[in-house]
């Protein structure tokens, strides 16, 4: 344990030897250049995306974000992001709503309930789900999941809950926002559950055993000890899952149908920021169209940067807090 403690914090004394070694300096320079390069790369990504969307920004300004339009006919060109923003928010929050309880359930199962024998295999299987390429999930979504959803679940939900605008008429096309939500759920489930599992494993066992010794049931221990302890971390995991769902392009393009309208009916076709960009890969007709597509990418980039920074901030704050309390124990 002590070796690991030391190795995370190697002594970094400035190199004060009499000889300045050429090898040392050059390795440090090369490695430093690589690290600098990554930082520059992130800056370059932001700059190039802003630069690429400049034409659309100048032409439309903020109105782009609240306009529902995608008309590439030269001469009558008009572009807006509102319907794609709406679709992105609807699909990613819908997916998070289903994936959150499911992945926390999986994580609790793996840390608290699973017999030792099946713990390893189940962990491996859930993580394998993360490795399935999105284009395959999309292919499966079109030809296997979509038809099943449309004929059974969507029509059932429509007949029973049809009075809620979300559950309208199933679309004839087979593609729907609902299919996209299920597909995204599948894609973020392994991520959120593996982060949550790590968090639950961090909960000090004396706290858990203390609660159980006071006569709580296992679920009460989870509610009273594990959830409060891991609260910040779970929030970070959910934000990362949300950001992943917002950025997913391929599988959503395949199943969502692509229609630039705002409607609340989950069973109709829709579009998202990422899927609109992906669907346009065969080329844009005009430079304004291309610039507008990149503008959509800029919106997506801002979302994901914000989500990731917030999540990292929470993670670091939680780590510091727990580190301090744990240190106070000893």
């Amino acid at each position: 344990m002590s070796a690991a403690d030391i190795s995370t914090e190697p002594t970094r004394r400035p190199f004060t030897g009499r000889r300045v070694r050429f090898g040392d300096v050059s390795l440090q320079l090369v490695a430093g250049a690589a690290a600098l390069g990554v930082t520059v790369l992130v800056g370059l990504i932001v700059w190039k995306i802003v630069d690429g969307s400049r034409l659309a920004i100048v032409k439309n300004g903020w109105a782009f974000l609240i306009r529902v339009a995608w008309n590439p006919v030269p001469g009558r060109e008009l572009y807006g992001a509102a319907s794609f923003l709406f679709g992105t928010v609807l699909t990613s929050f819908g997916a998070l709503l289903i994936a959150a309880p499911l992945s926390i359930g999986v994580a609790l199962f793996l840390t608290e309930l699973a017999p030792r024998v099946i713990q390893g295999p189940v962990t491996a299987l859930v993580e394998t789900l993360a490795a399935v390429p999105s284009v395959l999930i999309g292919l499966w979504g079109i030809y296997v999941l979509g038809p099943v959803l449309r004929t059974s679940i969507e029509s059932w939900l429509h007949t029973v809950f049809g009075f809620i605008p979300l559950f309208g008429d199933p679309s004839a096309a087979g593609a729907s926002i609902f299919t996209a939500i299920i597909v995204l759920t599948i894609m973020i489930l392994p991520i959120v559950s593996s982060i949550s599992r790590e968090l639950f494993r961090e909960v000090p066992s004396e706290l858990k055993e203390g609660a159980l010794a006071l006569g709580t049931t296992r679920w009460e221990m989870v509610r009273g000890v594990i959830f409060p302890y891991a609260r910040g971390g779970i929030a970070a995991a959910l934000i990362l899952g949300l950001s992943r769902a917002m950025g997913e392009a391929i599988a959503v393009t395949q199943v969502v149908g692509g229609s630039p309208t705002i409607q609340w009916n989950l069973f109709s076709t829709g579009d998202t920021l990422a899927s609109k960009i992906a669907a346009a890969y065969q080329g844009a007709v005009t430079s304004l169209q291309l610039s507008s597509l990149i503008y959509l990418g800029l919106v997506l980039l801002v979302f994901s940067l914000l989500a990731n920074l917030v999540a990292q901030w929470i993670v670091r704050r939680v780590a510091r807090k727990h580190g301090v309390t744990r240190g106070g124990h000893v």
Partner: peptide, 20 residues
Amino acid sequence: VIDVLAGVPAIVIGIFVFVL
């Protein structure tokens, strides 16, 4: 920076290289 780069959506990386 590494964590942020890992969070950039793949499609945005695609259009970045496209523009660049």
